[in-house]
Design a protein around this nucleic acid. Structure first.
Length: 847
RNA sequence: GCCCGCUUGAUGGAAUGGUAGACAUAGCGGACUUAAAAUCCGCAGGCUUCGGCCGUGCCGGUUCGAGUCCGGCAGCGGGUACCA
């Protein structure tokens, strides 16, 4: 008996597939198309198990859809710009490009071992000048369309390294390399006007039927559309004089205006800045606020603090009421107007603030079932519905009526107006880094920022860069940034900012449809292939990457680079779970790779040094925590099919999976069992009319596996195949029907284990390779049952079961149930109160 | 903090509101073998007075019936705009 040798079989079939060119996709409007895409990888060094899980899922879909007659596009590329390459350049004294392209070579070779049916002729990296040249064109077209502008914004600044730090590079307020206290610095930066499309981006979420509900919810919440009122407070200075400039606030709760106890402005608000010029304590408070990080998480988690200014504001409807004005660290300059009024009774954060600074808490919304005279707010703000009280002309109204009435009066007095606000901020794309797509702009003293003419694109990155000093090498490279103004010809300076790498990944899916085109896209290819029919990737990209891509598709449509039919980039999205692993740390906090961890009884030690290791929480595999596993070892030992099979077998694909070494062996044993079965049945004669239990089981499996693949239930599909193998093995091996069943099983397995399936198919006498064979159809005659066994519950507990004809009516089942001995024993001669019969499902007798 | 998820045997997990634990891993027992590996067969949630009873993170609700739906809580994970 021959043993299945993956080392020989797998390369043989990969070569055959290349020879047949079956992975090549060609635009052909006469054929139905299917575009399946997995999120492309960052070339970090080596493929990790999370990648392979992702690509295997896409490959199952791609192979299945081809077998179903679709013209399939399944490309691969590299998200190749980014910070790690610069870090590697500094650490290894190499060039980011060299490091990146070497990584790509390694990872491409690893991916090819997986037997993925990818059209490699379309491969590109985002750091290829051919790619970023087209991206620069898109930037300029967006610029001309008014989707790009400059404004000041804040960055993390490392005063020692003299460089901008990413949020990830700030640890406890200090730079990760220098250890210096990080400062905030204002820079003029480039922005994409994504907020201009906020309404469309949120409204179109309803059209994304193929997306998971959770992602749609996250996107809607991220955009965060709110309807409220923007209005003016008159400002009174410390001498009691009314200032010329009012304080403009935004609120979603104008109904609670009479409950206002204070106003709060952002530390970045112009009023705060001007007051600080004359108040050292306030200046110190603003400095303290600047010490906080730039991340939303840090700002929100920080203790809520306020600084009471000498100014007050006059209540718009109650001129005698003056409210104190605080500068508060939790008010964001980016949201609304950077100023709010606080109503402690009906907002938890305002309540906490009021308790801390001893401000009055006046309830103005009273729940329907409470007494307005005695209703009070304790430690919890009341945010529910109710009747307005303590609010003059609003008293007795509902919340909605009061909102409308306040807005009406404000508009009449020209004091305010209804306004829709978004949590979404414009997309800042400027990065003060080398390894990114240069922003194609020249700064001229006379002309201002001038676009680089299209015929001068791409603005190429210079090769001669040094990474021995921190900071942006482009900034120091005067040979590169010195140029002449394209408009007036005077001496000018190139923009040295490069683009956020999210820009690169926002349109790559479109570039795959015509990767060699000398324009960003080619109309006929884009029109045929787009949108992507199935996009697959990690849920960690649920918001930013996907939202930016949705914005880009619209921008590209508006600038003529995509058809209107591709205004949404991805018809269907599948978010696969992450591959997680335990984390390991040495006593000094250094992370340790799983390969370097050994267990000695209950003790966990470092393999070479024997140092004790603490086992940390199971988190997503990441380079920074070193908890990564190398799939190549598994492929070398067991073959790609075993790895593919195992990867999809245990966890449902949308769920996180904890990687443990056990289980691969099981998959490998399965592969061997399949091969033994093929060996046993391959010489049996064929008979077109054959029939047995094994063949019936195979047709049923075909039906359920087909449904499982369509629904991304790969783990269930695999469980079904395990079951089928058992059923076929139990049959007479020399019956023609058993061979037919085995043949069907092989076809079912093909998308999962393509090399094994091809080899087995050939052994079973398949006329052409499975890559050229259509997906089989189940024989309906094999799918029907004559009888069905129903569980019988008595008072909701299963007591017995009943076998009836599959087509038995409700009445027939009821009669059979009442005649059943067990049922009669429980009923004890009485009539059941109720008899619930769900045909083909269950019977419940309520005694 | 906020937004979004997840929680079922020793482990990964299965279950259109309808028999909880399919399938697999680890385990135990057996067959084959001089022996081992490999392979094959079987057992397997807990408790039990052997009638049953309990059991899907915790508390409560809806229902003839809840792992599944609703309300609350806890723990864990993802995102939080310069990691990709």
């Amino acid at each position: 008996m021959s043993r299945y040798n993956a080392r020989v079989v797998e390369p043989k079939w990969r070569e055959k597939w290349v020879e047949l060119g079956c992975d090549r996709a060609q635009t052909d409007p006469d054929k139905p198309k299917y575009y399946v895409l997995e999120m492309f990888p960052y070339p970090s060094g080596r493929i990790h198990i999370g990648h392979t899980r992702n690509y295997t899922m896409g490959d199952v879909i791609a192979r299945y859809k081809r077998a179903r007659g679709f013209n399939v596009l399944h490309p691969m590329g590299w998200d190749a710009f980014g910070m790690p390459a610069e870090n590697a350049a500094m650490e290894r004294n190499t060039h980011p490009g060299k490091w990146t392209y070497e990584n790509i070579d390694t990872m491409r070779a690893q991916l090819k071992l997986m037997g993925l049916s990818i059209d490699w002729s379309r491969e590109f990296a985002t750091c290829d000048p051919d790619y970023y040249a087209q991206q620069q064109r898109l930037f300029l077209d967006f610029y001309k369309a008014g989707l790009v502008y400059r404004k000041k914004s804040t960055v993390n600044w490392d005063p020692v390294d003299q460089t901008v730090l990413a949020n990830e590079q700030v640890e406890d307020g200090r730079g990760w390399r220098s250890g210096a206290l990080v400062e905030k610095r204002e820079l003029t930066q480039w922005f994409f006007k994504i907020t201009a499309m906020a309404d469309e981006l949120i409204d179109a979420i309803d059209t994304l039927g193929g997306w998971p509900e959770k992602v749609r919810t996250m996107q809607a919440n991220w955009i965060g559309r709110s309807h409220g009122l923007e209005f003016k407070f008159d400002v009174i200075d410390s001498k009691g004089k009314t200032k010329a400039d009012p304080l403009i606030v935004y609120t979603t709760r104008p109904d609670t205006l009479f409950g206002a106890a204070f106003c709060a402005i952002s530390p970045g608000h112009p009023l705060a800045l001007s007051l600080a010029k004359r108040n050292k304590k306030l200046d110190a408070f603003l400095a303290e606020c600047r010490q906080m990080g730039t991340t939303e998480e840090e700002l929100e988690k920080a203790e809520k603090k306020g600084f009471k200014t000498s100014y007050r504001v006059r209540h718009p409807f109650d001129p005698d009421k003056l409210l104190p004005v605080y500068v508060a660290n939790f008010v964001l300059m980016e949201y609304g107007t950077g100023a709010i009024f606080g109503c402690p009774a009906h907002d938890q954060r305002d309540l906490d603030f009021a308790r801390k600074y001893d401000l009055p808490v006046l309830p103005v919304v009273v729940p329907e079932d409470a007494d307005p005279a005695s209703f009070e707010v304790g430690d919890e703000a009341y945010t529910g519905p109710g009747r307005i009280a303590n609010s003059q002309f609003l008293d007795g109204m509902s919340v909605e009526e009061a909102k409308a009435e306040v807005a009406r009066r404000m508009e009449k007095d020209d004091r305010g107006h209804l306004k829709t606000n978004y949590r979404l901020r414009d997309w800042g794309i400027s990065r003060q880094r080398y390894w990114g797509c240069p922003i194609p702009i020249v700064h001229c003293d006379a002309c201002g920022p001038v676009p680089v003419p299209t015929d001068q694109l791409p603005v190429r990155l210079p090769d001669d860069v040094e990474f021995d000093t921190p900071g942006n090498p482009l900034d120091r490279n005067s040979a590169w940034h010195s140029t002449n103004c394209p408009s007036c010809g005077a001496k000018a300076r190139r923009e040295t900012d490069t683009m956020d790498t999210f820009v690169d990944s926002s349109w790559y899916y479109a570039r795959f449809t015509a990767p060699e085109a000398d324009t960003p896209t080619r109309a006929e290819d884009a029109a045929y292939w787009l949108p992507v029919d199935q996009y697959i990737g990690g849920v960690e990209h649920a918001i930013l990457h996907l939202l930016y891509s949705r914005f880009f598709a619209r921008g590209m449509n508006d600038t003529g680079h995509l058809p209107a039919t591709a205004r949404e980039p991805f018809s269907a999205l599948f978010t696969q779970g992450m591959v997680c692993h335990e984390t390991y740390q040495l006593p000094d906090g250094k992370w340790v790779s799983p390969d370097d961890v050994v267990r000695d009884g209950s003790a966990v030690k470092h393999r070479s040094t024997g140092a004790p290791i603490s086992v940390g929480p199971i988190t997503k595999m990441s380079k920074s925590k070193k908890n990564v596993v190398d799939p190549e070892q598994i492929i070398e030992q067991f073959g790609a099919d075993t790895a593919r099979w195992f990867m999809l077998s245990d966890s449902p694909p949308e769920r996180d999976v904890e990687w443990t070494a056990s289980g691969v062996e099981g998959a490998w044993k399965f592969v061997q069992r399949v091969w033994r079965l093929i060996d046993q049945v391959k010489d049996t004669a064929d008979d077109a009319n054959a029939e047995n239990d094994a063949l019936r089981a195979a047709h049923r499996a075909l039906q359920s596996v087909t449904a499982d693949i369509e629904a991304f239930r790969f783990n269930k599909a695999i469980a079904r195949v395990y079951e089928l193998l058992g059923q076929i093995s139990a049959a007479q091996v020399d019956e023609p029907a058993t061979k037919a069943a085995a043949r069907l099983m092989i076809q079912i397995m093909f998308p999962f284990t393509p090399h094994l399936a091809e080899e087995a198919w050939e052994a079973l006498g398949g006329e052409q390779p499975l890559v050229q064979t259509a997906w089989p159809e189940p024989n309906p005659a094999f799918l029907v049952d004559d009888t069905v066994t129903l569980p019988v519950q008595i008072n909701g507990k299963r007591r017995t079961e009943l076998t009836v004809a599959a087509e038995a009516s409700k009445e027939e089942i009821e009669a059979a149930v009442l005649a059943d001995a067990t049922v009669q024993r429980y009923l004890d001669g009485k009539h059941p109160k109720k008899l619930i019969v769900v045909p083909k499902r269950i019977v419940n007798v309520v005694a």
